[in-house]
């Protein structure tokens, strides 16, 4: 990365970018994965339709998560904002859908 690009980071240190990248790539994927799984289990429609709906949304959720990770005021907010809903989704998957 040239000096130029770093200045464009608006004074954000390298570490912040690395941290945001980490949460964007892996956190974003985790969020997309658990949301897809939770929707597949919980949506009150036919099983196949719930699966396809969840999967269709997954790539959009991932995209929005990446954009979010790079637009928050601090890297910490990015981590919290992505990991919190991921945990909620994981809990829903763990519960295993409406009995």
């Amino acid at each position: 990365m040239s000096k130029l690009s770093l200045r464009q980071l608006a004074a954000s240190p390298r570490l912040g970018v690395a941290s945001r990248t980490l949460v964007a790539v892996f956190g974003g994927y985790a969020l997309a994965a658990v949301t897809t799984a939770a929707l597949a289990l919980w949506l009150p429609v036919e099983r196949a339709d719930a699966v396809i709906t969840g999967t269709l949304l997954s790539f959009l959720i991932y995209t929005v998560a990446v954009l979010f990770a790079f637009s928050t005021r601090s890297a910490l907010r990015a981590w919290v904002g992505i990991l919190a809903p991921t945990l909620v989704g994981a809990a829903l998957v763990w519960l295993g859908g409406p009995a």
Partner: peptide, 21 residues
Amino acid sequence: TYSGLLIFMVMLMPWGMNVAY
């Protein structure tokens, strides 16, 4: 771009299918 990802959903995002089936 979006449909390109969906074509590989079995590889990229199998989690919905995995928990439901």
